[in-house]
Write a protein that binds this DNA or RNA. Structure first.
Lengths: 204, 204
DNA sequence: ACTAAGTCGTACAGTGGTGTTCACGTTATA
DNA sequence: TATAACGTGAACACCACTGTACGACTTAGT
């Protein structure tokens, strides 16, 4: 699989080209999931043939761009403290991640068209695991409801963030209010039945 | 705009062809948003040229299919009682609509590619209005929170239904549990801060 | 039964993307 | 400085879809 792998080491300018292509792919596909390889090559300041010299197919380019985006996301997530009060931890998570979801939104759309569902799932395994453990801990501590599956709750969280990004793009939500709306909604959705929903306006 | 309109009335077999095409378009685009006009014509049991005799462009076909789906949805919604306790009304709404959202999911994707955003918004105006008035009433009666905009809450409801449909397609949710999960999640998300989340297991 | 409307298959032109080949210029690396 | 790797534009074959044109056949409406 992977790009063109030979036994000899790649030259420095080749690595530079590859990097430019992947970066350009992330940008172009981020704006338009149907962006052609010609567009991407042009945006990377590289000939179209050069692109084909490093990637066998369009799918490989998309895969590389998506992997890169996920890696970036993982780095950003490493800086977030997910310990302590689950409600506050979730708030911090949303604050750090929601606009990151926004940026990779269109890129994900491209990936879903070009890559297999299994591959996409694998790519998301890292970020997904973090949220799952956070949700599981919140449930164990009684802060989150247990009458819904963890998978569903994780899905709800990501779906709400995703939709907030679209609402902003449609002009029905301002970026300033996004994080607040998301946390207010998700924390309420996660509250165990019978318990009062938290007041999110007065959070840390 | 519309399809080919002439001063003379259409013949019966022409109307039959048009209907078959629109129906086939809804089915094909429902499975695959990128379905070609050839596929649609074949599925309709009609020659490709005949399709072009009735529709000037691909966009017109998509528009017709989408309009049809929306009309069907509106009919189904007419049968739903949205009066009385807002919580129960919302539950009834979800029960009636969620799998309808499922069916039109891929069709919507096709429409978003081919039609203008304004056109799509117009098509959804009918269904959207129902939910908005329901949410507004729930807020006025103190059943739903008022610290988030109505537009956001309507968006949350539809987003959750949409995502439930995808979870089913991915095999992570069974159709039996879908409505329950959706209502449990949305009713909690709509609960005013400070008030307890309703127990949805013991509903009507 | 006559006519206009409709349908059909085939064929054609145009478009836009994909992936490959070639010959030639450039650059990294040892 | 030699040389292999790399970058390049131009060209080519291929494919799928769109939209149009034509001639022949079938059907609906009066």
């Amino acid at each position: 699989m992977g790009s063109k792998n030979s036994t000899t080491a790649k030259r420095a300018d080749a690595l530079r080209s590859i990097d430019a292509i992947v970066q350009a792919a992330a940008e172009c596909l981020g704006k338009n999931p149907e962006a052609s390889l010609s567009e991407i090559a042009r945006a990377a300041g590289v000939g179209r043939v050069t692109l084909y010299a490093h990637f066998d197919s369009r799918a490989e380019v998309v895969d590389a761009a998506m992997s890169r985006a996920i890696d970036r996301g993982n780095e950003a997530l490493d800086a977030v403290d997910l310990t302590g009060d689950p409600l506050l931890a979730l708030t911090r998570y949303v604050e750090a991640v929601w606009h990151l979801v926004d940026q990779t939104r269109a890129l994900l759309a491209a990936a879903q068209r070009e890559l297999s569902a299994g591959r996409i799932r694998d790519l998301h395994a890292g970020p997904a695991a973090r949220v799952e453990t956070l949700v599981a801990r919140g449930r164990a501590e009684g802060a989150f409801r247990t009458d819904l599956s963890i998978a569903w709750m994780v899905n709800v969280l990501h779906t709400i963030m995703h939709s907030a990004a679209e609402e902003i793009r449609a002009g029905r939500l301002t970026p300033n209010h996004a994080a607040g709306h998301i946390t207010a909604t998700v924390l309420a959705a996660f509250t165990p039945p019978g318990k009062p929903v938290p007041e999110t306006s007065g959070r840390a």
